[in-house]
Design a protein around this nucleic acid. Structure first.
Length: 131
DNA sequence: GCCTTGACGGCAA
DNA sequence: GTTGCCGCCAAGG
């Protein structure tokens, strides 16, 4: 059990809110829960959630869009198939096109729990990647 | 009790 | 533009 169950709960909630046909990144989730540095911890929580909760963890990729956690599904091809079934465009065999399918937790009418300065920075990044 | 590894991210060379 | 290194938190050996 994680030392911060609340953190894991936040992660689960955010992942559960990821719309169909969209994906998000570990960093965005970490930022959404108020801990940008917890990107790794997010992945750890998801791995544990993979066998506990019925969350669409296949919609979570790293900042490059690479299916870094594909092997945890048995094989990256499994994760790729799930994403393709949702109409998620792929930039490569095991890399999604974040330019088209990236979804941000706070883009759903919510805002990150991070300080104003960091929020502004994140917003700038979002606009830049939102194309 | 210390060291290594891990579904990551950002910055520097 | 690409490749590499460091940082952060937690768990397992």
């Amino acid at each position: 059990m994680p030392a911060s169950p609340d953190f894991a709960a936040r992660v689960y909630e955010v992942v559960a809110r990821v719309p169909f046909g969209r994906v998000t990144t570990y960093g965005r989730i970490a930022a959404a829960v108020g801990d940008r540095r917890g990107a790794r911890m997010v992945g750890w929580a998801l791995m544990h959630a993979l066998s506990e909760r019925d969350l669409p963890c296949h919609r979570v990729v790293n900042r490059t869009g690479l299916l870094s956690g594909g092997w945890h599904f048995g094989h990256p091809d499994v994760m790729r198939g799930l994403l393709l079934a949702e109409g998620v465009p792929f930039k490569a065999a095991y890399q999604v096109d974040l330019e088209q399918c990236l979804w941000e937790p706070w883009a759903d009418g919510e805002r990150p729990l991070a300080p104003a300065d960091e929020v502004d920075d994140l917003h700038g990044i979002a606009l830049s990647e939102d194309r």
